[in-house]
């Protein structure tokens, strides 16, 4: 997202080498997962009509219609939402 955009810009302007940009991305993935594990405690429940499900290369993809997201803080209604989830066991290995 923002990071990849930034890295793209910097690589294209020549201030950053592509290899280093990749390293930054890898580090971001690590940091993000760590941060999610360590700092986020919220629990969310999702309900909705499953429009599409697919499981490919250990990645689940769900497309929900009229989904309802509930957490402690807020509640969101979405007509269509896509959920992409990779295997937690594979990531920890």
């Amino acid at each position: 997202m923002c990071l990849t955009e930034t890295l793209d810009e910097m690589v294209q302007s020549g201030t950053l080498s592509p290899e280093l940009a990749i390293q930054v991305l890898v580090q971001f993935d690590k940091s993000m997962t760590e941060a999610l594990e360590a700092q986020v405690k919220s629990k969310v429940t999702i309900k909705g009509h499953l429009h599409t499900y697919r499981f490919c290369d250990n990645v689940w993809t769900f497309i929900l219609q009229d989904a309802l997201f509930k957490s402690e803080e807020l509640q969101e209604n979405v007509s269509r939402v896509k959920i992409v989830a990779c295997d937690s066991k594979l990531l920890t290995q």
Partner: peptide, 16 residues
């Protein structure tokens, strides 16, 4: 969702 970023530690989903 709805232009909001929400992080969660756990989520359970029930879909039909």
């Amino acid at each position: 969702i709805n232009n909001k970023d929400i992080l969660f530690n756990k989520a359970s989903g029930e879909f039909d």
